[in-house]
Amino acid sequence: MTAKEANPSQPGGKSRTEDTAALLRELVAHLRQNRTQLREEWARRITQAKLLTAMTEEEVFAEATSVYDNYVEALETGTFEALQAYSRNLSERIIPRGVETHEVVGIVLLLRDTMARSLFGKYHEDFEKLNRILDAYEPAANRIANTVAVGFVQERERIIRQQQEAIRELSTPVLQVRERLLILPIIGVIDPQRARQLTEQLLRAIRANRAKVVVIDITGVAAMDSNVANHLVQTVEAARLLGATVIVTGLSPEIAQTLVTIGVDLSEMATVGDLQGGIEEAERLLGYKVVPLAEGQPA
């Protein structure tokens, strides 16, 4: 799978000249030669800086080895897919253990620094060459740091979204208070995504419970923009298509105003002041309809 930051442009955005390519080759050879020593040096500095404290020393060293090799490979090939895939994978493993964004950015910057120091050591005699090596190294190293950090942040966002999803499912129960009567108490902030989820949940619950009346209580909803208000109206209509009557309770004057503004005819929407009143009305509807059922069933 290709991702956004894996575009074909070269590190730093400049095209890689022959000269730069040669310098990077030399650089890569140096980093390969000193792999063991640099890797240890890096792992030591990670521990010193108190990064990745949620992981054991062996784990840190194992990951450091993989990151190091991927890093050098990215420098060599100028392509970032492998590194990117690895950093996603790494993130997936370490995020549940509580590793923070700054730690991941921190270790990559430390590696960048460890390598740069080693280059200083090797080329400090030839200042001109050192400059050219660093010029070739910097943009690639920055790009790598960026790739790893972005991978981590994206993975983190994905996990957070997943968790929010789970919390949402939990926080909006559709309650069956008596046969054929459902209550949907909505609490908190509703965004379009949540509104949509609520609707889908409610519609399924109507079918599963054979509900005839639904009370949607929005007392706990702080504010509602016109998008969400529209959604509420759609939910009421969709429930009706399934054969259920919806009663909306706890409508604040502000929300009522929003509904009127988007053109909802409030006289067409069954609204009752509070939840208790709504339930009473629902029971009246159910009772009223239940009585004649005892008679005259069709043959």
Partner: peptide, 19 residues
């Protein structure tokens, strides 16, 4: 009209179709 499925109802109201 009986038996409208939940997903069908959901798509209908988004299309703007009501009964």
């Amino acid at each position: 009209i009986v038996g409208i499925q939940p997903e069908v109802a959901f798509a209908m109201v988004q299309l703007g179709l009501t009964l």
